[in-house]
Structure formats: structure tokens, C-alpha cells
């Protein structure tokens, strides 16, 4: 089973100023060599296969600014992300396993930003795409 990490870097100040995550979210993953597209943008398409374990982690661009990922809205038939926290801390991450491969499954991200916890949705710009018949990650190591 392969694992891919999706790191979501949020310009919290920029998002609160503009009222939108568009252009203020930078999404990265570790599957570039397996076909992921749009790495470093707010429209990352992550290449996955059935059984791929996906982990979503967030990181504020400036560590003084708070952001948390409150929800991942995705077709539950494809993946059911669960919220977990690191032992002994309130820092969270989401994790889920791809249940079936699909050509393209877009998903929403729901964030809470800033000290007032402003809710903001990044709608359907990120997606899972099919890994195809390229080799699994472990083969490339």
C-alpha cells in the first residue's frame, strides 16, 4: 500500500484580507512522479490508486497565524477521510484510504482561519485522479 502526503499551505493573512482561499492556498503532494498535477497551486490533482493511503496536513505560511482543516467533503464511495490528532497535542491531520479508483474526484476543503475561527470553503479545486498503470511508489524508491 502506498501513501501520499498532501500538505496544504495557507496564507492566512491573505485569505482573511481577500475573503477567499483562491490564490492563498498552496497544495503539495509527494506523487509528482506518479502523475500528480498542479503541485504548488490551489488546484492540486493527486494521482492515487485503490488502496492509496492519503494524509492531509496543513501548515500556515506564517506560524503566528492559526488555521485548521475542519472538513474534507468528498464522495464517500471513493474515500472517507477521518480526523486524527497527534499524540498529546491539539494539532490535527486527516487520513483516508482510496476505496476505488475514479478518473477524477474533486473535493471541498473547509478551513477555520484566524483567532476568530472564520470558516472558509475552498470548493472543488482539489481532486484525486487515477494513478493509471504507472508503478507504485515503492518501486521508484
Amino acid at each position: 500500500m502506498s501513501q501520499v502526503t498532501i500538505k496544504l499551505m495557507v496564507d492566512v493573512v491573505g485569505a482573511l484580507e481577500s475573503g477567499s482561499l483562491s490564490g492563498n492556498l498552496f497544495a503539495f503532494d509527494t506523487h509528482r512522479r506518479l502523475g500528480s498535477q498542479g503541485i504548488g497551486t490551489d488546484a492540486l490533482h493527486t494521482a492515487v490508486a485503490r488502496g492509496t493511503r492519503i494524509m492531509w496536513v496543513i501548515a500556515p505560511l506564517e506560524c503566528e497565524a492559526f488555521v485548521s482543516l475542519e472538513d474534507i467533503v468528498i464522495d464517500r464511495a471513493v474515500c472517507e477521510p477521518e480526523l486524527n490528532s497527534y499524540p498529546g497535542s491539539s494539532v490535527t491531520y486527516w487520513i483516508g484510504t482510496v476505496k476505488k479508483a475514479a478518473p477524477l474526484t474533486s473535493y471541498d476543503l473547509v478551513f477555520s482561519l484566524g483567532s476568530h475561527g472564520r470558516s472558509m470553503v475552498h470548493p472543488a479545486r482539489l481532486a484525486l485522479i487515477s494513478l493509471g498503470k504507472t508503478s507504485e511508489k515503492g518501486d521508484a524508491q
Partner: peptide, 10 residues
Amino acid sequence: YGISALPPTL
């Protein structure tokens, strides 16, 4: 940061 590393907020 490493993309697969622990988050910096931890």
C-alpha cells in the same frame, strides 16, 4: 519543510 514531515505547528 519536507512535504511528508511532521507539521511545523507541532
